[in-house]
Simulated assay, not measured.
Amino acid sequence: MPNLFSVSGYLIYFWSNENNEPIHGHVSKGRHTKHATKFWLTSDHGCILATNGS
């Protein structure tokens, strides 16, 4: 999975195929994980965050 960048130990990255989900990125501490926080950038220059609680 491609890394966009890292900041203070957090990785910002994306998967190449996520089953018809809108384009979004992931943030996780230290390593890639399927339980990472997801974020979507909106057309009004906002951001939507989603976590799975794990």
Rank of each mutant, 00 (worst) to 15 (best):
M1I: 10
M1F: 13
M1W: 12
M1A: 15
P2K: 06
P2T: 10
P2S: 11
N3L: 15
N3C: 08
N3W: 09
L4V: 11
L4A: 11
L4M: 12
F5N: 09
F5V: 06
F5Y: 14
S6C: 08
S6G: 07
S6V: 02
V7D: 15
V7S: 13
S8V: 04
S8G: 09
S8I: 04
S8T: 07
S8F: 09
G9Q: 01
Y10D: 05
L11S: 00
L11I: 13
L11G: 01
I12E: 01
I12R: 01
I12P: 00
Y13W: 10
Y13T: 00
Y13V: 02
Y13P: 01
F14L: 06
F14I: 01
W15E: 03
W15F: 03
W15R: 01
S16C: 05
S16M: 07
S16E: 13
N17G: 10
N17A: 05
N17W: 02
E18I: 07
E18G: 01
E18R: 04
N19Y: 02
N19A: 04
N20G: 04
N20R: 12
E21A: 04
E21G: 00
E21Q: 11
P22W: 08
I23W: 12
I23Y: 12
H24T: 03
H24Q: 07
H24V: 02
H24Y: 04
G25A: 09
G25Y: 03
H26F: 05
H26C: 05
V27C: 05
V27P: 01
V27K: 00
S28L: 02
S28M: 04
S28I: 04
S28N: 12
K29L: 14
K29R: 10
G30V: 06
G30I: 05
R31A: 12
R31H: 12
R31F: 10
H32D: 08
H32G: 05
H32V: 12
T33E: 09
T33C: 07
T33G: 05
K34A: 11
K34Q: 09
K34R: 10
K34S: 11
H35D: 14
H35Q: 13
H35F: 12
A36V: 06
A36T: 04
A36R: 00
A36K: 00
T37W: 03
T37D: 08
K38T: 06
K38Y: 06
F39G: 01
F39W: 10
W40C: 00
W40E: 01
L41T: 08
L41V: 08
L41Q: 07
T42W: 06
T42D: 11
T42C: 06
T42N: 13
T42Y: 14
S43G: 06
S43Q: 12
S43C: 08
S43K: 13
S43A: 14
D44Y: 07
D44H: 12
H45S: 13
H45E: 14
H45N: 14
G46M: 10
G46S: 15
C47I: 15
C47D: 07
C47A: 14
I48K: 14
I48T: 08
I48C: 15
L49C: 03
A50W: 15
A50V: 08
A50I: 04
A50E: 15
T51Y: 02
T51H: 15
N52K: 11
N52S: 15
N52C: 08
N52D: 14
G53V: 02
G53L: 11
S54G: 15
S54D: 14
S54L: 15
